[in-house]
Computed example of a mutant assay.
Amino acid sequence: MTCKRRFKMFRKMVLLTLGLAITLTACGNPNVQNEALTHIRLPMGYIPNIQYAPFYVAVEKGYFKEAGIEIEFDYAFETDGVALVGAGELPFAVVSGEQVLLARAQGLPVTYVAAWYQQYPVSVVAKSELGVVVPQDLKGRKIGLPGLFGASYIGLRALLAAGKLTEADVTLDAIGFNQVELMAAGQQDIVVGYAANEPIQLRAQGIAVTELRVADYAQLAANGILASEKVIAENPELVRAFVGAFLKGLKDTIANPDEAFELSKAHIPNFSELDEGVQREVLAVSIEQWQAERLGYSDPAAWENMQNVLLDMGLLSEKMDLSKAFTNEFIP
């Protein structure tokens, strides 16, 4: 055997041995593959809930992992998420449309990069015997809501405006997030909540209610994905990957709610103790609000309408450049 042939055989053996060592190391340590993933903590703005099914599906079906992302759900209040993204400490958060405009008015460099909800999810719920079937029927009524803040308050103001009413035409009662309990106890007759939550829970308890959905009277920018201008400028591919993975989960949830329901269970503590019928209805109503010809698309008119509501409320002092508040650049 020539020296040249012996060298080739030796080189081949070294490469095979090295390849085997790498393979065994990877097999022995399942975290090796995960080391290449980008870890993202995502503020959700609410507690674990079946309404987050698109995110859970994207995790369970490996869409985030395929996009190079390891995701950690953080169920803090949405205002915390906005502040953290605005400060550049986190790249993304789940927020409502009004939060984006209010944050930008305060100088926070944030942009909404994908719409999750196509309909503003807030409703006014009233006991049926009151006969509240149009916004004008709210005149002179006492209305319970979490407080004079957030999506519930914004949605109520939009609904009042649709009925040519003002806040002076009603009595607002700040009751915290106890709408169902207080209404069931007879301490409230009209409350503001979410279409996929309070009315479903109340009906499940045998309480007959009517519902005024804000989305039936006003098209407003709703819940979606917020990103920092920093990550958009420095790592647009991460934004595209994150949005793409989420939208795959959203598409699959809409197409196969039963599968999404099952995949979500592992992410919701004590799910077995919840009423399955109620949870399935929550998901069904949520899906109604997510439907769109182009998932993730932000309607410019919805942002104009939201800005006008905030201006009328005095929460914004002047119009802003909405082209910087949202973008459709990262959706398919």
Rank of each mutant, 00 (worst) to 15 (best):
E281M: 09
G45Y: 04
V100P: 04
A325Y: 10
E89A: 10
K164W: 02
L212Q: 00
Y153W: 13
L160W: 02
S152K: 13
L108T: 03
E329S: 12
L102E: 13
V122C: 05
G131Q: 13
Y117G: 06
V32R: 14
P269D: 12
L283K: 03
L42A: 11
I287E: 14
V239R: 15
L145Y: 12
E167Y: 08
V309K: 07
L226I: 11
N305P: 07
T166D: 01
P269R: 06
E234H: 09
G97T: 04
R203P: 07
H39T: 04
V191Q: 06
M320Q: 08
P54C: 03
V100F: 10
G88R: 01
A184T: 07
Q33K: 07
D252F: 07
S317K: 15
S123T: 09
G244P: 00
V57I: 03
G19T: 08
V278W: 10
F149E: 15
F73A: 12
L263D: 03
R157D: 02
P54S: 09
V14R: 09
V124I: 15
E329Y: 07
V282W: 05
P121W: 02
I40H: 09
I47K: 14
G62I: 03
N308Y: 09
I200T: 08
E293K: 12
D275K: 14
N235I: 10
I268A: 11
R280I: 00
G277E: 12
I50M: 08
V231S: 12
L322K: 00
A218S: 12
E198D: 11
Q205N: 05
D216N: 10
A260Y: 07
Q187G: 03
F246R: 05
P54R: 03
A302M: 06
T210H: 07
N305H: 09
L263R: 11
A93G: 11
R213L: 05
V278F: 07
Y194R: 00
S323V: 01
G193W: 05
L145T: 14
T111P: 09
L247N: 09
T23I: 15
L101V: 01
V170W: 08
V133K: 14
T166I: 05
I175S: 09
S96W: 05
D321I: 03
H267F: 13
M320P: 01
G144A: 01
V125E: 06
R203V: 03
A302C: 04
K251H: 05
R6K: 14
A83G: 01
V231R: 15
E234G: 06
E66S: 11
L159H: 00
G68F: 04
A93S: 15
L202T: 02
L283C: 04
S228I: 15
M44D: 13
Q119M: 03
